[in-house]
Design a protein around this nucleic acid. Structure first.
Length: 358
DNA sequence: CTAGGGTTAG
């Protein structure tokens, strides 16, 4: 690494660690951490933040926490904020909130990053009372708040049950971005306002913002919820032809769901075949299978069930689909449950690993 | 002295 004999400075370590976190390059990050320890340099706040973020990105919350614990008493606001963010990003909502509350108690400065982590954690919990508290904190503590804070705030309100508050914040914003709109579109769809979601999509384009692949997941989801077949198909077409976005499995799943619910199984099937590079996605076939069940198409349903079985025979969800016998025509809620299981979070997880232990 | 931590879907 440094054959010249010039030893790396703290600046070097923090820069390289940030690069590793950004990529992310887990193994390299561990190597650098190891070298840092060998160098005998005491890590400063910048280095600590870089390491917390790095471990956080590879899902190793424990290691991030142990780095944090080394500087816990310095009360450096950035380290605390990085740790709150790390918890929130890894689904440790409770821990994120506890740490945020401790920051408040110790009067550690609440930065945008810290509040965004807390807002995100509250969103995960769906805790309306906590949402009220945090919204008040934002008002008092984050007056120069950036778009990250606004977006996280809107998302929190929507998921904690208040579309009105989400709207209010949205309307108060001066500068919105693509995430602001994607968040609002999802919020409206979740609250059954599919037409409003479509207007929001239009407004976004009028503002000159370019929708991304997540925006289209949001909009297709809205169409699916509202049974807006025509609008959904038009949006899909818009995405591919005008914006040149290649469909992801999520887009096709939404479309299969939309067409399938409307009883257009053949169209749904054709769409899957047009995107054959995604034909190994269990989510898509799960949606198709559910649609077949809904409309009593036994033949297509069994075909979908076989596909699911071939794709991942180990998956317990697929075993249920195959074993339960599709044609038994029992309850369709079970099929829905299976579909959720299959399309849900992956069953395979990489084990957490430390940068030190290599 | 330099440098960073964050929001959207499922």
């Amino acid at each position: 690494m440094h054959r010249t004999g010039v030893p790396p400075s703290r600046f070097t370590f923090s820069s390289v660690l940030n690069a590793c976190a950004r990529l992310p390059a887990i193994l390299e990050g561990k190597q650098v951490h190891k070298r840092l320890i060998q160098s005998g340099l005491l890590p400063n706040n910048k280095i600590v933040v870089a390491m917390i973020a790095g471990y956080g990105k590879c899902g190793d919350v424990k290691e991030a926490r142990s780095v944090f614990d080394c500087v816990r008493e310095t009360e450096d606001a950035s380290c605390w904020a990085a740790m709150v963010a790390c918890y929130a990003q890894n689904g440790c909502a409770k821990e994120a909130i506890d740490m945020y509350m401790e920051m408040r108690a110790r009067e550690v400065k609440i930065s945008d990053v810290a509040i965004v982590g807390a807002l995100s954690a509250c969103t995960q919990l769906g805790d309306a009372e906590l949402a009220t508290t945090l919204a008040a904190d934002v008002g008092r503590l984050c007056r120069g708040r950036g778009v990250f804070v606004w977006n996280a705030l809107i998302h929190m309100h929507a998921k904690c049950g208040s579309l009105d508050l989400a709207r209010k914040e949205f309307n108060a914003m001066k500068e919105r971005d693509v995430i602001t709109y994607s968040t609002m579109i999802t919020a409206l769809a979740d609250h059954g306002q599919s037409q409003e979601a479509l207007s929001m999509f239009q407004q976004m384009q009028n503002e000159g913002l370019r929708p991304n692949e997540v925006t289209f997941i949001s909009i297709l989801n809205a169409c699916s919820h509202g049974g807006l077949v025509k609008e959904g198909c038009e949006s899909f077409e818009l995405m591919t032809s005008v914006f040149g976005i290649r469909p992801l499995a999520e887009h096709v799943t939404c479309m299969v769901d939309l067409l399938g619910r409307a009883g257009q199984l053949e169209r749904a099937y054709n769409l899957v075949m047009e995107n054959v590079e995604l034909a190994n996605d269990p989510g898509i076939w799960g949606a198709f299978h559910a649609a077949c069940r809904l409309h009593g198409d036994v033949e297509m349903g069994e075909m979908a069930a076989r596909k699911l079985g071939e794709m991942d025979p180990e998956d317990p969800g697929n075993q249920v689909v195959l074993a339960s016998g599709y044609a038994s025509n029992s309850d369709w809620q079970a099929a829905e449950k299976v579909r959720k299981m299959i399309s849900g979070k992956g069953t395979k997880r990489s084990p957490g690993c430390s940068w030190i232990s290599g």
